[in-house]
């Protein structure tokens, strides 16, 4: 079937298999920041923004993204870069495999929540698993980033 969508501002039209998942569509177009960590919609690694909302690209048919706008880390621009710097300064990325999904959800959170508390941050990001960091360094990076941005 034919779909037409926008990925990182670029229009893509393609004939796809009906069963194709959005994650595989994105990876096949070179957006390999999008990672798969599970098959049960539990890890958050594959998070991308669809019309500004964070979703799990592993659990969405590419067909469903027809007519929508998708943003992956490759297209997240300055915002992602700014937050990445705080992550790097804490050594919070570790193996880095969960970083793209986390960064996308942090961007979504920043847009949605005004001056979130620590508890609200944890709540919003609870669907992003990380096995390396123990989450503390991520929290330090997020708090510093949000502070910086609000100045």
């Amino acid at each position: 079937m034919k779909i037409s969508l926008t990925v990182n501002g670029r229009k893509i039209q393609e004939d796809i298999q009906e069963s194709m998942l959005l994650i595989d569509f994105l990876r096949s177009h070179g957006y390999t920041s999008v990672k798969r960590g599970c098959e049960t919609s539990n890890c958050g690694l594959c998070t991308v923004l669809m019309d500004d909302h964070p979703i799990l690209s592993c659990s969405m048919l590419a067909a469903r993204a027809d007519g929508h706008s998708i943003v992956t880390l490759e297209g997240a621009g300055k915002e992602a870069e700014a937050f990445a710097e705080f992550m790097a300064k804490e050594g919070a990325e570790q193996c880095g495999f969960c970083s793209p999904g986390l960064i996308m959800n942090v961007i979504a959170m920043k847009k949605e929540l005004k001056n979130p508390t620590k508890e609200e941050i944890k709540q919003y990001l609870s669907g992003n698993l990380c096995r390396c960091s123990g989450y503390m360094s991520q929290m330090r990076a997020i708090e510093k980033y949000l502070q910086e941005e609000s100045v």
Binding site: K35, L73, G91, E93, G96, P100
Partner: peptide, 21 residues
């Protein structure tokens, strides 16, 4: 020292650096 990891920029910008990439 708190030296930033050498691969931090690549990992945090989602560069294709892992096996399947």
């Amino acid at each position: 020292q708190p030296v930033v990891k050498k691969d931090a920029a690549a990992l945090l910008s989602g560069k294709p650096v892992y096996t399947d990439d």
